[in-house]
Amino acid sequence: MASAPQLPLFYNGLEPLSSETHADYRIQPQDSAPHLIGQHAIPITTDEFALVQRFMPIVFSVGDDAIPLGLMGLNEGVNVFIGDDGKLVDDNFYVPAYVRRYPYMLARLRPESEELSLCFDPSSPVLGAYDEGDKLFENGQPTEVTKQILAFNEQFEQAGQRTQNFMRELRELGLLMEGEVSIQPDAGGQPFIYRGFQMVNEEKLNGLRGDQLRKMQQSGMLPLLYAHLFSLALMREVFGRQVQQGKTPPSLPQGV
């Protein structure tokens, strides 16, 4: 079932980054992402649709607060792009910004506050009081590395706002419908039916008035919808990877 994750996905906790508390913290480069093992659906932003649709199917989670998801597998607990060692199976792959953001995140320290603070997951081995690695602070001030991390997180938040606006328009136009994909295995037998996600109703899209379509074209929304629709052809490719990796469920699946 591809439902909206209970954010924040991957995070075990959040702690505000402080020049006092974390004055001696450094970043240690990681060559793997263990938190990605078995994660089959990753939140993505509309800014990424053009890149994501080259590698993964783009679908929408179920529910009123639907979000776009890049499918790294068609079944719970299956990720065909990440090996058991947490490393990418293929070097030529677009890693979603949500993944690259970890272990950092902009968050409100108090519910009533409008200000966002740069936080991190204290359980992550990426940063700590290490002897080697890039410093986060120097002489009580953020280093260039920390400034770059903050800038990336700010850009991600802005992309998130654009994605929320896109989803609101999608709901107002009534273009989302329950998705279903049937995949016939090459070896024959009964098809695998995947449900539990939403997709754009292409018939409704084609039936929109000319002025509505023109407005969507001018706003950049229409190309995003077609990127999503074109990406659905990758369902079979992801299914094929699951077969090759021996990760196809023995019984007919009911959702992604």
Rank of each mutant, 00 (worst) to 15 (best):
A2I: 11
L14Q: 13
S18I: 10
S18A: 08
A33F: 00
L36W: 04
I37L: 03
A50F: 09
A50C: 02
R54F: 00
R54E: 02
M56G: 05
V62A: 15
G63K: 13
G70W: 04
E76M: 11
F81I: 00
G86N: 10
D90N: 10
R100F: 06
Y102S: 00
M105H: 08
R110T: 14
E115L: 07
S117C: 08
L118N: 04
C119V: 07
P122Y: 03
S123N: 01
V126F: 12
V126M: 13
G128I: 01
D134N: 05
F137I: 02
P142D: 08
T146G: 11
K147Y: 06
G160A: 15
Q161M: 06
Q161K: 07
Q161L: 04
L175K: 02
L176T: 11
E180L: 15
I183Q: 13
Q184N: 15
A187H: 11
Y194R: 10
F197V: 09
F197E: 02
V200E: 00
V200P: 00
N201F: 01
E202P: 01
R209F: 09
D211R: 05
P223I: 08
P223Q: 05
L225W: 05
L229K: 06
E237C: 00
V238G: 01
Q242Y: 04
V243R: 14
Q245P: 12
Q245Y: 13
K247A: 11
